[in-house]
């Protein structure tokens, strides 16, 4: 968890994290379009490395997890495991229409209902697929969110309380009939 910036070392860590976020990409059942657009971000034209953003293979090195696509039933437990391996504070970006609500795949039999049922999502990017500049924008948005969270001492401040009387108990997100 991000600790309120008391000591010098904590401030240094928060500063370094915001200046050079490491990203890991996880294809949870996408059609590849989002993935190739993320790779396009690394290329000389968009070149995210000039902002200090590095794409890493291992989730254990990553600050931000980009989930491309809807989550298939087979990928759900794997995605959860990848997310669990990331060090705190961890952030999740859900890419594209599929990541937000399923897109064209909404309601198919081998799909989870949403990415948010598997891992908590912090930033959604619109588009099918989002353009590379939109992806960069999402990462920058996520960095601002990180800074705000660090100032508030964690993610709790922006988590909405469930409306009184709302029945959220025992809701299963596995299959939409």
């Amino acid at each position: 968890m991000a600790v309120p910036d008391t000591g010098m070392s904590r401030r240094l860590v928060n500063w370094a994290r915001a200046k050079s976020p490491w990203i890991t990409v996880y294809n949870s059942g996408a059609c590849n379009a989002c993935d190739i657009e993320i790779i396009a971000c690394l290329m000389p034209r968009f070149d995210v490395e000039r902002f200090g953003i590095l794409v890493k293979g291992s989730p254990r090195h990553a600050d931000i997890l980009i989930v491309t696509g809807h989550v298939t039933l087979k990928q759900a437990s794997r995605l959860r495991r990848v997310w669990e391996q990331m060090p705190e504070p961890k952030y999740v970006i859900a890419m594209g229409a599929c990541g937000a609500a399923g897109g064209v795949f909404h309601g198919l039999y081998h799909m989870m209902a949403c990415v948010d049922c598997v891992v908590p999502v912090d930033v959604y990017v619109a588009g099918c697929p989002p353009r590379p500049d939109e992806i960069i924008n999402a990462v920058v948005t996520c960095l601002n969110l990180m800074a705000e969270d660090a100032a508030h001492g964690g993610k709790e401040w922006r988590r909405k309380k469930p409306a009184t009387g709302a029945d959220t108990e025992g809701k299963s997100c596995t299959v939409i009939p």
């Binding site: 989550v71 039933l73 087979k74 759900a76 437990s77 959860r80 039999y109 081998h110 989870m112 049922c117 598997v118 908590p120 959220t168 108990e169 025992g170 809701k171 299963s172 997100c173 596995t174 299959v175």
Partner: peptide, 9 residues
């Protein structure tokens, strides 16, 4: 049908 059972977040 597989995937993750989400009871309560």
């Amino acid at each position: 049908y597989g995937g993750i059972r989400v009871e309560k977040r």
